[in-house]
Amino acid sequence: MLKLDAVTVQKGDFRLQADLQIATGAQVAVIGPSGAGKSTLLEAIAGFLLARDGRILWRGEDITALPPGQRPVAMLFQDGNLFPHLTLRQNVGLGIDANRRLSAAQTDVVSAALARVGLGGMEERKPADLSGGQQSRAALARVLVQGRDLLLLDEPFAALGPALKAEMLDLVAEIVAEKGATLLMVSHDPQDARRIAAEVVLVAEGRALPPLPTAEMLDNPPPALRAYLGAPQILDPDR
């Protein structure tokens, strides 16, 4: 279980408070108006922002003061998820060990991960030689080899077209299911939430609220969410 115990994070003048729990293996969408602090919440969990108050616990262990790379977290950002000067093999290999050379067995793991996301045989390509969708797949291959318990997505697929984005989300869902990982995913699109997330964390007015079932939340949104979502008809996928 991921537990945010009365956590306060400060980013300049902006302050976000979070007091919530997320079950191990849950798939959670983080939604809310822009500027409400969705990314801030993820950055705090990943360790890029330090909690000013409160504790963050993963399976009962306090990770509040751990540096980002030592938390049980793999995170994908909006951009810059691959080093542009390294090949895919090197980029994905960093997920196994960023500080040492890889063994032959580890290199095989990298190739297998690339094949798993549909990039088999592209080990020596560099990110610039790939399409946006392929770059996302390569980043997901690294997430695969990292084998972390928590996967945080800060809209890494925002620049992709709708069909490609849906494809990536399905791939994420598969990976998360295979690994039994816990997923937190920032989203602007309620459809994304419905697609792969069973629960929704609403971030609004400087607060991250405890997760609620997605369908319930979107069908019967609280006022802050309703203001963000606008007209109710877009919420119903059947119409």
Binding site: P68, F77, N81, F83, L94, A98, N99
Partner: peptide, 25 residues
């Protein structure tokens, strides 16, 4: 600016960051 966050997320520090990121870039 472009690489520090990703390196941190991967726990790449010190000599490895110099060798793998700063030097080639």
């Amino acid at each position: 600016q472009q690489n520090a966050r990703l390196a941190l997320a991967l726990d790449m520090r010190g000599p490895a960051f110099w060798r793998r990121v700063i030097w080639p870039r």
